[in-house]
Computed example of a mutant assay.
Amino acid sequence: MTEQQKQIGGGRRTIGDFSPKLAELTDDILFDDVWNRAGLAARDRSLITVAVLIAGGDADQLGFHLRRAKENGVTETELIEAITHLAFSAGRLEAMTAITVAKQVLAA
């Protein structure tokens, strides 16, 4: 696997003043450790994360991870195709919610 940019979380920046422990766990374990393991490329981790968020109907976190996926090399076309594919695996309503979020995020 080629060298990739280190993934950095934003927990401390976004919720650190309100929930310091959750921010610490998010930044230090999820991002600093799990996201930076050598077993999967950040691009693949992003696609997996986006798929799980769509399947779970988690529109609140989806915008952040769509942007992160683009930063990690996933194209807009691939993200739209993944959402379309998930309409038949995760549910049409979840896909419709996700495509609405994607349209807003990717247009920005």
Rank of each mutant, 00 (worst) to 15 (best):
Q4V: 08
T100M: 14
G16A: 08
R43C: 01
V105P: 00
R45T: 04
A102C: 07
A38L: 03
G57F: 05
S46M: 00
A41K: 07
A51G: 15
H85M: 13
G57S: 11
Q61E: 12
G9K: 06
G9C: 07
V34A: 04
I15F: 07
D32K: 12
R37T: 09
G91A: 04
E78N: 07
D33G: 00
F18A: 13
E81N: 14
E24C: 05
N72I: 03
I80P: 03
E81G: 10
A51W: 01
A69S: 13
V74C: 08
L53W: 02
F18Q: 07
A108P: 01
V50C: 04
M1V: 09
A59L: 00
G11W: 03
Q61C: 12
A82I: 14
I54T: 03
E94C: 14
S46L: 03
A41D: 10
T14V: 11
L40R: 09
A42S: 07
D28F: 03
H85L: 14
I99Y: 01
G73S: 11
T14Q: 06
D58Q: 15
T2G: 00
Q5C: 00
D33K: 05
R68D: 02
S19T: 05
D17W: 03
F88H: 10
L93I: 07
G11P: 12
W35D: 00
G16E: 09
G91K: 04
A107Q: 09
M96R: 02
T97S: 11
A41R: 05
E3I: 04
V105A: 03
L53A: 12
V74L: 01
R43V: 02
T26E: 11
H85R: 15
R67P: 01
Q4N: 09
S46N: 09
R13W: 04
E24N: 12
T75A: 09
V101H: 04
V52D: 07
A108V: 01
V74Q: 04
K6W: 06
G57T: 11
F64D: 06
W35A: 02
E24H: 14
D44E: 15
T49R: 05
L106A: 02
L53M: 10
N36I: 06
L79N: 05
K21R: 12
M1C: 11
H85D: 09
R13Q: 15
D60P: 03
